[in-house]
Design a protein around this nucleic acid. Structure first.
Lengths: 194, 194
DNA sequence: AGGGTAGTTGGACTGAGGCTAACAATACTC
DNA sequence: GAGTATTGTTAGCCTCAGTCCAACTACCCT
């Protein structure tokens, strides 16, 4: 029987080591000019190992946010019919709570230096679409017409992503990200939903 | 002096030939299982030629829509300050006018058979983000607060993309795409903008 | 006939990402 | 202490998208 709970070879290098190496290089040379091989070389691991930790190169920047979004989507799917707009908004607020030291924040702040502008539009779009689809499903389940549900979904998703971006760009001068988001959601509070 | 207006070697293969070959293969084997080499082989051209006609593999599906979106973004950027929501909505309506026989419509209708679901979320997200950014800029220029402008942008962009999707899925049973979009835009007509 | 122009092509190259079989480091069992 | 199960690491292979370029070819014009 096992008692320690730990079996097998221990990890030799952490996700964080790789993420740090990656962020350094992105800042030094830019995102495109940095290959996965470069990252693993600086981190002192083999290229193969990179994909044990991250699903893709861009995952270095987005994995934190993606986890939160995935959790939110699960919560949204579990929402019962007749879910209110408020219930949805509560779920969304959890995405940005305690966001602080995330690689994505760094990327959003230094998008120019990293040569990330195009990349960020692309990647933000993907998350926007995912989140929008989930909110839209919730709205549909609550009886909202399909297209209206899509619009509702996009508006809510945009509030989330936009809050993160604006907050990251302005440093902590705006307060916490969830305060920013709360403010943003107030704008669409009166949309036909509910 | 030239009189015919045509100089140099004439095109041997049309964009359409390639697009048709691509769509056939996407339907037969799925999008991922179809390589660019497969497409050019069926079309009877070299692989190099593909990239003379399309910027990327997914461009086969999206180039039509992308042109319309690019035009719309140009129009939005040219909008004077104090642009009204109505002016923006007029520009957006042009994106979907006379949409009819587009490879994207085929893709949206047969997303399942093409194994495109993930791909489409990703690609739709990109267009959503692009269009949203442009609308958001217009709103910002008109004095709307940044985050609200983002939400406004996303809502309008979602209306466009969603209309296309819903229209493509339902065949012509819904009328023209711009009728669908007009209806969708009515939902957000009263958003704070304007 | 010869030259300018534009379309076509093969081929070499990079970089992401997938896959796998060998190998290494630990904890557990006897 | 020797063996074993488990998990982490790695080299090495592959495919495919996308870029680049130098040769080549078909056409029009003078």
């Amino acid at each position: 029987m096992s008692f320690t709970g730990k079996v097998g070879r221990p990890k030799a290098s952490s996700r964080e080591t790789l993420a740090e190496a990656a962020c350094e290089l992105f800042l030094e040379r830019g995102y495109d000019a940095t290959s996965v091989a470069d990252i693993t070389q600086r981190a002192g691991v083999s290229r193969s190992s990179f994909f044990n930790y991250f699903a893709s190169k861009s995952d270095v920047l987005w994995s934190g946010v993606d986890e939160r979004i995935a959790q939110a989507i699960r919560s949204l799917n579990d929402l019962h019919k007749a879910a209110t707009g408020d219930a949805v908004r509560e779920v969304l607020l959890l995405i940005v709570r305690d966001f602080e030291p995330d690689p994505l924040a760094l990327a959003l702040r230094n998008a120019g230096a990293m040569g990330l502008d195009d990349e960020l539009v692309r990647d933000t779009g993907l998350r926007l679409a995912r989140l929008a689809a989930a909110v839209s499903r919730a709205a549909s389940a609550a009886g909202v017409d399909v297209i209206r549900a899509d619009i509702l979904g996009a508006a809510h998703a945009a509030a989330v992503l936009s809050s993160l971006r604006v907050w990251a760009e302005h440093g902590a001068g705006l307060g916490t990200p969830d305060a920013v988001l709360r403010d943003a959601l107030a704008t669409i509070h009166h949309l036909p939903w509910a």
